[in-house]
Design a protein around this nucleic acid. Structure first.
Lengths: 394, 394
DNA sequence: CGAGGTGATTGGCAATCTGGCTAACAATTA
DNA sequence: TAATTGTTAGCCAGATTGCCAATCACCTCG
């Protein structure tokens, strides 16, 4: 129910927004294309494009030849009108210092720079480190300081956007209240923070197997913990305090008190995968190595059956609560398990869950968290641009 | 991201919609009030009100005196511009025939008629029965046939809105594919169908404890089964096939295979409550009677502790997946349990769940499902009215 | 094989229409 | 008298239709 009222200025802003929105989404459009999409008349489209071009948001990128008549100009959003940066902070556990991967993309989503480095956050202040990483990204891509409109941060923890605080995070220094606003002030951009699994779901929605789904649940089987992201029609469900999907803490029911209290993390977390490997004689020093070894070993069916049984415990609860049309298995362990794990999980879930959700393995080979963070940052930049048009003209 | 474009006609429609929306929500407003709310100028407001009045959607309901100047006219949406009907179909189990409760309200939400009757759907076709009930409602309220714009149906089952089919429903005849479109055709109105628990959540959002929550999960402890409704910022999460919240089928983890497979329904469904009452020496022939007896008995603490433990098993999973800011206990069993049950569940959930969600008991005394269905129907009518304005003027 | 005609398409200009705004004004009541 | 309501008149912004020149592909004819 739009409760929007206004005069002709609002119209102009709406039409400009609509045109820019279409250009951002489709990439390159002629006036005729825009006419069909917006249902506006030729002079209006011309006027809108003239204004957008003057504002530097839109440029002519080519000509459409091969048909009768003059070559139609192809307009597209100016790639250099704004940039988005993404930083993924990962705690890679006992094996080394936390790792930071960062990238920068232009308004069309093309990646312009990428940096990967190890930073010891016990010695380095997060704010300082992040500002430096972003500055290096800018330099590598040759982008001016004010070109970056949004920096998206991805962490293995939950972000309480109301309190602007990161919670349940293992990387030192990141849980300090007030950190995020300080980073935003130091960078001079808007800063978004989100859970790494949520960002992986964003990537899955845009580039992966979730493209056409009207909603999906993504379960992340990581080296350490596990997580869940819930996509509903393209928007993520974050919960009251950003804690939605923290299924690692989900307690499991024990029919009698002889069993100690266990949660899902105990069942399918990294330690559990290691132990499971030991029980089935699968070698490997890390969970990833164990699953990789099992995937290469045709005799390891038992291992996958039991792992799948455990995964299906969590999935059954998720499916009963959410009824997703699609469940995506993602994360290093899931990727290493591949089709073997998928088949085993599918069988186990069919047995356990009442509703038939499709199940798939992620199709993203690159760093899903980083890609998702770039996408999230890009979306934020685009929305801000569209909003700024509305406000400028009002 | 509004991708809306258009010309001055769109403006007209938007402004009319906005005004009608405010009038529907606030009840009675003067021109000056509307000016402040919509930011439109005096002549525009006059023009909009003139058109709305001519269309019969708005009337003058009074005058605002006591201040200098002429008495300002108070406008309000015409209560008789459209009506919504709601029908709640309940299977009351072995104790009798299914029961139907229906009500009719005007555009302001005032209830104009209510009917309660028992219908044996083994003998009566659902379509015939529903058409008759709606006709009786119209007669009791003195409303013309074309006055009802929307009929909202509530059933204990899930509604697949894509297939327009009711699933998982116990009442005979209601699961037949094609039934809902046929009813709509026979009634000559639009027909909405939703799960009874979802509708109870709608009522909770509008009249109950969920009014100010930005989202909540409502767990329904019924005489027979249990259910869950998920409200996210006022919209309900329904899932891919309308099956979200069917937590009765949620399988519970068994650490070893010596225990038979149990689901949540086995743990907190009506039969389980009866059995629990027997174990603790609480009298009663129905689950409701058992809980009522326990609530009256100060010695029944044990009963509530165990019931709450079981409820918290489901709630812990729900909280881990969704992180709701509020959990509402509703349904006959929860209502009978009252503050005693609430206290016990709060204790149990604090122990089991990692996140601290507030927990409350429903504050709706009347038939929550029926109220929710009325609200849902009313919302649909209002949205249709606003949309029709837009289309008329286009 | 080349040149010119034909038709479709692009994009700009002028005139018109719709709708909202400001300003002035009559009417009414504390 | 002062404040407030609601109407009328004139104005302005923005979108639309209709018209036109320019351009390019394609076809036909010499």
């Amino acid at each position: 129910m739009t409760r929007l009222a206004g005069s002709s200025k609002l119209l102009r802003a709406m039409n400009a927004s609509a045109a820019l929105g279409h250009l951002l989404e489709a990439g390159g459009l002629t006036r005729a294309d825009l006419r069909k999409l917006t249902q506006l008349s030729t002079p209006t489209i011309s006027e809108v494009l003239r204004r957008l071009t003057e504002a530097g948001l839109v440029t002519v990128v080519g000509y459409h030849s091969g048909r009768p008549g003059p070559n139609a100009e192809i307009y597209a959003a100016n790639p250099d009108a704004a940039y988005a940066a993404a930083v993924s902070v990962r705690d890679i556990g006992a094996s080394g210092a936390p790792s930071v991967v960062a990238a920068l993309c232009d308004l069309t989503g093309a990646e312009r720079a990428r940096i990967e480095r190890r930073i010891d956050f016990l010695r380095t202040d997060p704010k300082t480190a992040l500002v430096e990483v972003v500055a290096d990204l800018r330099e590598e891509a040759g982008v001016a300081a004010e070109g970056i409109h949004h920096v998206q941060l991805g962490v293995a923890g939950s972000y309480d956007s109301r309190a602007q605080t990161i919670r349940h995070v293992d990387v030192p220094g990141f849980s300090r209240p007030g950190l995020v606003p300080e980073i935003a002030a130091a960078l001079g951009t808007r800063v978004g923070v989100d859970n790494d699994v949520n960002l992986a779901a964003v990537a899955e929605r845009r580039h992966g197997v979730g493209t056409d789904a009207d909603g999906f649940a993504l379960i992340w089987l990581g080296q350490e913990g596990l997580g869940l992201a819930i996509d509903i029609g393209g928007t993520l469900l974050r919960g009251a305090r950003g804690g939605a999907g923290e299924i690692g803490y989900m307690p499991l029911y024990a029919p009698d008190s002889t069993h100690r209290k266990v949660d899902l993390q105990d069942l399918v977390g990294g330690a559990a995968v290691l132990a499971l490997g030991r029980d089935h004689g699968v070698p490997g020093r890390t969970p990833l190595e164990v699953v990789q070894a099992a995937a290469a070993d045709p005799e390891a069916g038992e291992f996958f059956t039991e792992l799948a049984d455990r995964v299906s415990v969590g999935l059954a609860a998720v499916i009963a609560v959410l009824d997703p049309s699609l469940v995506v298995l993602a994360g290093p362990v899931a990727q290493a398990g591949g089709q073997t794990l998928l088949a085993a999980v599918t069988t186990a879930v069919r047995r356990a869950a009442p509703l038939e959700s499709a199940i798939a393995v992620t199709t993203i080979d690159d760093d899903a968290v980083l890609l998702g963070a770039l996408d999230a940052g890009l979306t934020a930049v685009r929305e801000a641009l569209i909003a700024s048009i509305r406000d400028d003209q009002a």
